[in-house]
């Protein structure tokens, strides 16, 4: 066959070879099918361990109790025992090293998340003890009267 016929074919072959070589260099070696299907499981295996190594911020109440046992006991008798420490005290992260102290959220808005009255039949919300924020000591911080670890006023006497 004549040279000018084959030349574009060689050029095309060279281009394919170039692309394949570039792919081999650029795609990480752990890229491949790691699962049942090419459609859903074609990925870089290292990405899974990347996500596993993401830092944990909320350590959970069991972590807090290790040192703050007296606070855990004070809340155990109250209905607020179902609330995680970190919901009000903020994420522990690497406390006590970093941060050294946690900032407690003492705002009225925090309490109102559950205790602002909403007349919603069929939802657990309507069964919680509730107040109308516009009428129940408006503007006051709830913690002025209620102890968040034992919010029942009769128990405080």
């Amino acid at each position: 066959m004549k040279n000018h016929v084959l030349r574009p074919l060689f050029a095309a072959m060279a281009l394919v070879a170039l692309i394949l070589t570039a792919r081999a260099i650029m795609v990480p070696p752990d890229f491949g099918v790691h699962g049942k299907s090419f459609t859903y499981n074609f990925y870089r295996a290292g990405a899974v361990s990347d996500w596993k190594n993401f830092p944990v911020s909320y350590k959970g109440s069991t972590y807090c109790v290790e040192c703050h046992n007296e606070n855990a006991e004070s809340i155990a008798a109250s209905k607020h025992r179902v609330i995680q420490c970190e919901n009000c005290h903020g994420p522990a992260r690497n406390h006590p090293e970093d941060p050294e102290t946690l900032t407690i959220n003492r705002s009225r808005d925090l309490c109102l998340r559950c205790h602002a009255a909403l007349p919603y039949p069929g939802s657990l919300r309507s069964e919680l003890p509730a107040i109308d924020p516009a009428e129940h000591n408006p503007g006051e911080a709830c913690v002025e009267c209620h102890n968040p670890h034992n919010p029942n006023l009769e128990d405080m006497e």
Binding site: R113, C114, L118, G122, S123, L124
Partner: peptide, 9 residues
């Protein structure tokens, strides 16, 4: 959804 009270925590 029966248990959700919408506290947003």
């Amino acid at each position: 959804t029966y248990k959700c009270v919408g506290c947003g925590m």
